[in-house]
Design a protein around this nucleic acid. Structure first.
Length: 351
DNA sequence: AAATGCGCCAACCGCAATGGA
DNA sequence: GTCCATTGCGGTTGGCGCATT
């Protein structure tokens, strides 16, 4: 611990306070009040700077301080206040009589942060933990390898299909030329616990009071070799991965800036944005056009209200009508695995 | 018993805000 | 408006004590 410049000049004491020093300070302030802190040490006969005296009084000697462990109520209140106020310890302390900002800060840093993490809650955002993003990148790499192995077609420039794993798998990111260039995920019932926790956390975090509660069971309806589609008017870039999730007749996007070289680059998330209802045109189309078993096909499933196509065959095209509906009415942009935008023109050429 | 690692927390540092001259 | 001293705040540090090796 260093010493204030004023302390160096005046050769003042630093470090822990002795009982004698405490007694001197306590006696002085009890009799005279602290007044101007800079004059307190001299008047109280202490070899300390005023700042140090003030801190000792506020954090230790003040008679109204509460001692001992934090109660469960206090703990809950701190978490609640931190969610609302962030690291504004002094403001939080005003709501906890007898507790100091320093004490609350220490309690937070040494105990509450860990507790929240263990519960899968990000102590900074108070939202469910979406995991360490770097580990997701690692997962992306690993799963990409799996997907490439199972499809064997990633480098075919003529194949604009999304890469789809033929193996039943818990979930995956689509293979891309550069990791994290894009991302979508697929869910099934045998999701490994750690990843599942992350996904469920993500899903939960998308829930807002004004939107329907996401039903994670919806995801089990998605066959393993089908993909959720993604992107909403945002072209995936090297640093921008977009995760989408679909719930009932609503959809939302969650975007994370990943692969940061710069730690100061903030994570951008849109978890709190409202769920969007699928436009009636799309739902109506979905009711009239059920899935087909063959070929590339664009579909809007009425039960999950999602857009996807599948790659069981390369002989037919995505359904232009469905894609156009999604594009025109929901602002959904579609991309092939090489990040080639499947605009209407692209569909025209493929038809 | 000694060495090492680790968590907690008291206290410090640096900066911003405030207020008086 | 500017300067300077003081106060307040949040981040950080380093010492202590306990647990583990």
């Amino acid at each position: 611990m260093g010493r204030h410049s004023c302390c160096y000049k005046q050769k003042l004491r630093k470090g822990l306070w002795s009982p004698e020093e405490d007694e001197k300070l306590l006696n002085y302030i009890t009799r005279h009040g602290h007044g101007c802190w800079s004059s307190v040490p001299k008047l109280a006969g202490l070899q300390r700077c005023g700042k140090s005296c003030r801190l000792r009084w506020i954090n230790y000697l003040r008679p109204d301080l509460k001692r001992g462990a934090f109660s469960q109520d206090e703990e809950s209140l701190i978490i609640e206040l931190h969610a609302a106020l962030g690291n504004r310890w002094s403001q939080i302390a005003t709501r906890l009589p007898g507790r100091t900002d320093n004490e609350i800060k220490n309690f937070w840093n040494s105990c509450l942060k860990k507790k929240l993490r263990r519960k899968g809650i990000d102590p900074t955002t108070h939202k469910p933990l979406l995991s360490d993003l770097h580990s997701l990148n690692v997962m992306d790499h690993k799963l990409t390898s799996e997907v490439v192995k199972s499809t064997g077609s990633i480098n075919n420039p003529h194949d604009q299909s999304m890469v789809v794993s033929s193996q039943p798998g818990p979930w995956w990111f689509p293979a891309t030329a550069t990791t994290s260039q894009n991302a979508a995920f697929c869910f099934s019932s045998n999701t490994p616990p750690t990843v599942s926790d992350q996904i469920v956390s993500l899903i939960s975090s998308m829930s807002t009071s004004s939107s329907p509660t996401p039903m994670t069971s919806n995801f089990n309806l998605v066959p393993n070799n089908w993909e959720l589609n993604y992107c909403n008017n945002t072209v995936p870039s090297q640093n921008n991965s977009i995760y989408s999730a679909f719930f009932g007749n609503h959809y939302t996007e969650a975007s994370q800036i990943m692969n940061n070289n710069n730690n100061n680059n903030p994570v951008v998330d849109h978890h709190q944005q409202d769920m969007k209802p699928w436009p009636s045109e799309i739902l109506h189309y979905a009711e009239l056009n059920q899935s087909s078993d063959t070929g590339f096909e664009a579909e809007v499933k009425p039960d999950i209200a999602k857009y996807y196509w599948r790659s069981t065959s390369s002989s037919s095209s995505p359904n232009e009508e469905a894609a156009t509906l999604l594009h025109d009415h929901a602002g959904v942009e579609l991309y092939g695995k090489n990040l080639q935008k499947l605009s209407n023109m692209a569909f025209d050429q493929r038809l």
